[in-house]
Amino acid sequence: QAGVSRSVAVVTAYLMKTEGLGWEEAYAAVRTAKPDAEVNPGFQGQLKLYETMGCTVDSSSALYKRYRLQMLTERYPELQDLPREVFAVDPTSICQTPNTEVLYRCRKCRRALFRSSSILSHTEGSGPTAFAHKRGTNMAQLCGDGREKCTSYFTEPVQWMEPALLGVMEGQLLCPKCTSKLGSFSWRGEQCSCGRWVTPAFQIHKSRVDEVRTLPVGNFQTAKT
């Protein structure tokens, strides 16, 4: 039936933007005027994201990037011919990294791998308690506050990763220059050391890369190991 889902979602988003309403309030207002309105689950997810992003569309937002990746795993089950815009630009093809960004290099060969804008942050999980169901878990580790920092960066796909990602659900991420192991990926998702499950996951171990911060004065750079 026409006019009950897509158009309703557009009107709902308009009310959210112009009236400052949450998506549920705006949707309820539309349904009051049009009782047969029925936004499908996909549009509901987009409206929730729109609300979380402050009723703006920012393609550089980590929230937007993660949502887009999750949708891709549903639209491209064979993981072939992924849209080019999914991949972040390879930092080696950029002449200069902005002062506001951190560059991450392979610790072994110094090859530039990704920028801080490619990191998709996540809410910290419950720490070691999230792994209690696994065999061999040392219950003594579950004492204290039960929290552990993330030992990996979860990023959006970067152009140099493309050959490894297409056509397979999971695998290793190797440095494109020296082939040392940097981390792993899984379109099904992986669990961070903090306990949070991240889907899909493109995980680079912090111990395998160095941070390079560009100073605002001159051309000096500092590396954080």
Rank of each mutant, 00 (worst) to 15 (best):
G3S: 01
V4G: 10
S5T: 03
A13W: 04
Y14C: 09
T18L: 10
T18I: 10
G20H: 10
G20E: 07
L21Y: 13
G22F: 12
T32M: 07
A33Q: 14
P35Q: 12
V39M: 04
L49Q: 01
L49R: 07
E51H: 09
M53D: 05
C55N: 14
T56S: 11
V57E: 07
V57N: 05
S60Y: 07
K65D: 00
L69M: 11
M71R: 13
P77V: 09
L79A: 12
D81Y: 09
L82P: 06
P91R: 01
I94N: 12
P98G: 05
N99H: 09
R107G: 12
R110N: 15
R115Y: 05
I119Y: 01
L120Q: 02
H122G: 05
H122W: 11
E124F: 08
P128A: 13
F131W: 11
N138G: 10
M139P: 11
A140C: 03
A140H: 08
C143S: 15
G144K: 04
G144S: 12
D145I: 13
R147D: 03
E148D: 07
C150A: 13
E156Y: 08
E156G: 11
A164H: 05
L165G: 01
L165F: 02
L166T: 05
E170K: 10
L174Y: 11
C175F: 02
C175A: 01
S180R: 14
S180P: 07
L182A: 00
S186Q: 10
S186A: 14
R196A: 09
R208L: 00
D210K: 06
P216T: 06
V217F: 08
G218H: 02
T222K: 11
A223W: 11
